[in-house]
Design a protein around this nucleic acid. Sequence first.
DNA 1: TTCGTATTTCTAGTATAATCGAATTATGCG
DNA 2: CGCATAATTCGATTATACTAGAAATACGAA
Lengths: 126, 126
Amino acid sequence: MRYTHSNAQVIRYAEMFRAMGAAPRLRILRLLLTAHPRGLVAGAIQQKLGIPASTLSHHLDTLRHVGLLRVRREGTFLWYTANTDSLQQLMNFLYAECCTRSQAIAPDRCVLVRQALAPPIRKEKS
Amino acid sequence: MRYTHSNAQVIRYAEMFRAMGAAPRLRILRLLLTAHPRGLVAGAIQQKLGIPASTLSHHLDTLRHVGLLRVRREGTFLWYTANTDSLQQLMNFLYAECCTRSQAIAPDRCVLVRQALAPPIRKEKS
DNA sequence: TTCGTATTTCTAGTATAATCGAATTATGCG
DNA sequence: CGCATAATTCGATTATACTAGAAATACGAA
């Protein structure tokens, strides 16, 4: 577990956050996660989200450029998939910054950690 | 545990990602997390990060506007603190999108979940 | 090679964001 | 009040991002 991050790493994660920081791109990422690991061709994403082809292409490029997406060609089709390794790193970065490097958030306040603990924590209200 | 998110929620998380998606602001957030829960006054942040006062003020405003920061006044000083509730929600959103709504990433691939499980997973290489 | 489909790149207009010095506001103290 | 300190807001400049129609490229099939 890493407790601190280099300047270059911080810049890299900032770039990933920026790429996810626009609703159309976050929707693209969400869509590709539900279609994981097969992914989707650009045309299918365009149709599902109603984004003009050229606009979509730029968003896909932005996400791919920061490593959040991968692409492979099959004939005339380009299959886009979420890069789960990068997403995992991003989650771990957030967790490290919030819960280990600082103790701003107690690990057991995170759903992800709570979920891994058995038995599940009971709710106070309905 | 929520398995899906409303349109408004996706927009809100996109805004949070965008706010974190610039290196100066991500550095501010990291700094405030290490100073949590006391936080820091604007001048201390300025000094530590070497950002001109007016520029810093805009970055703080951006982060505060999306709910990632809180501010309280004490005399002439403004104390800024990270809003850990929002960060927690953001982490849970990411986890939900990657690991539960889709099964793109297996929960046990997340450090945060691995860390909660005992005994810790052994490494393959040094 | 010619055609059709998939997708990107080109081009350009518009909008939003980043930056920072100077002026302003907010607060407390004597 | 008059002054000093803290921080913001103003004003202006520059840079970056978003959008999307039109043109170009990539590929496969006939």
